[in-house]
């Protein structure tokens, strides 16, 4: 495939997996005729029929629970959250049913399902449409949580998520759907549990995910000019965290900055700090620094929204301070 838009990379992943495996189907709001709110399933119903691109009524808890029942009985559902925030309404089905049921049933049932859709803070969408559910769901046992960030990894990760035998919460980002990238012509899959070293470096380890990867890379351009050499790691797997890759990096740089879009309290970064302290405390030359979103409902006003999430200049400042001032 030549240059491919992010949403088309996701579409290709679903298309390929549906062609490969008749048990794979998509359900959710407007996934069929409308083609998905971000066009990830555009026209797939014409190819696979309305049962495999199942337009559901607006009943998140019930259609998510239905997907669990279908997965328990041998199908491979892909639930699309029109906006991932809507799936707060399905919290029980995702936590109690998708996440915990295999364990509670003593291994009687497996639940191979993907729950995917746009998460994150968009452009002035207001608090309810600007959720970062990954932080809310990270405590649920039995869930894998993945955040994609480029057309390339979106496609390879989604294909792997669909083939995985476990429930996977798969986060896309509402502001990344129009990114473009050249994708391989041949089929590829990417592991769900591996972080990606986006830029090797020696001064400091920057741990990030989803759209913040791009904020970090923007900051890195300036940092490079100013003579800094940060290592950038895209976590990809938010649960479980890939401590092989993270550990290798910290043992090299001895300094960590976390850049995340979720809120500071109880966020992915909070878990990272705790786990780094557990595993790698002796490797650290400085306290781990967290750059997170503010602990507030995301405001509508553009200027306030900008203040709520981490901006590239804050990343530059944080790296320069930590490396140059040796703190």
């Amino acid at each position: 495939m030549a240059e491919t838009l992010f949403f088309n990379a996701l579409r290709a992943a679903i298309d390929e997996e549906m062609a490969r495996d008749a048990t794979v189907f998509v359900l959710g709001e407007d996934v069929g005729h409308y083609g998905g709110s971000y066009k990830v399933t555009k026209d797939l119903y014409k190819k696979y029929g309305e049962l495999r691109l199942l337009d559901t009524p607006i009943a998140e808890n019930s259609f998510t629970g239905m997907a669990v029942g279908a997965a328990m009985t041998g199908l491979r559902p892909i639930v699309e959250g029109m906006n991932m925030g809507f799936l707060l309404l399905a919290f029980n089905q995702i936590a109690n049913n998708a996440g915990m049921l295999r364990y509670t049933s003593g291994g009687n049932f497996k639940i191979p399902m993907v729950i995917r859709g746009p998460g994150g803070v968009g452009r002035q969408l207001g608090a309810e449409h600007s959720q970062r559910l990954e932080a809310y769901f990270q405590a649920v046992p039995g869930l894998k949580i993945v955040a994609c960030s480029t057309p390339y990894n979106a496609k390879g990760l989604l294909k792997s998520a669909i083939r995985d035998e476990n429930p996977v919460l798969f986060f896309e980002h509402v502001l990344l759907y129009n990114l473009k990238e050249d994708l391989p012509e041949t089929e590829y899959l990417l592991p769900l549990d591996k972080a990606e070293v986006v830029r090797p470096g020696k001064d400091v380890t920057i741990l990030t995910y989803s759209r913040m990867r791009h904020h970090v890379l923007q900051a890195v351009k300036t940092l490079e000019k100013n003579g800094f050499d940060p290592e950038v790691i895209d976590l990809i797997s938010l649960k479980p965290l890939d401590f092989d890759t993270i550990g290798d990096s910290i043992r090299k740089t001895h300094r960590v900055i976390i850049v995340e879009e979720c809120m500071r309290t109880g966020g992915i970064g909070a878990e990272l700090v705790a786990s780094i302290n557990d595993r790698l405390f002796d490797e650290l030359d400085a306290p781990v620094l967290r750059l997170s979103s503010q602990d507030i409902p995301t405001p509508y006003n553009g200027a306030l929204e900008r203040l709520t999430i981490v901006q590239p200049e804050q990343i530059i400042e944080a790296v320069e301070k930590m490396v140059a001032l040796r703190i």
Binding site: A67, G69, T73, Q93, N96, S105
Partner: peptide, 28 residues
């Protein structure tokens, strides 16, 4: 399919199992 401890949460799961029967017959 199980005992579900929260009231009504088994209803969607059962509905999904029923959907699966229809899906197998009609799509597979």
């Amino acid at each position: 399919l199980g005992g579900y401890a929260f009231v009504a949460e088994g209803i969607p799961v059962a509905t999904g199992a029923a959907f699966q029967s229809k899906y197998r017959r009609e799509m597979m």
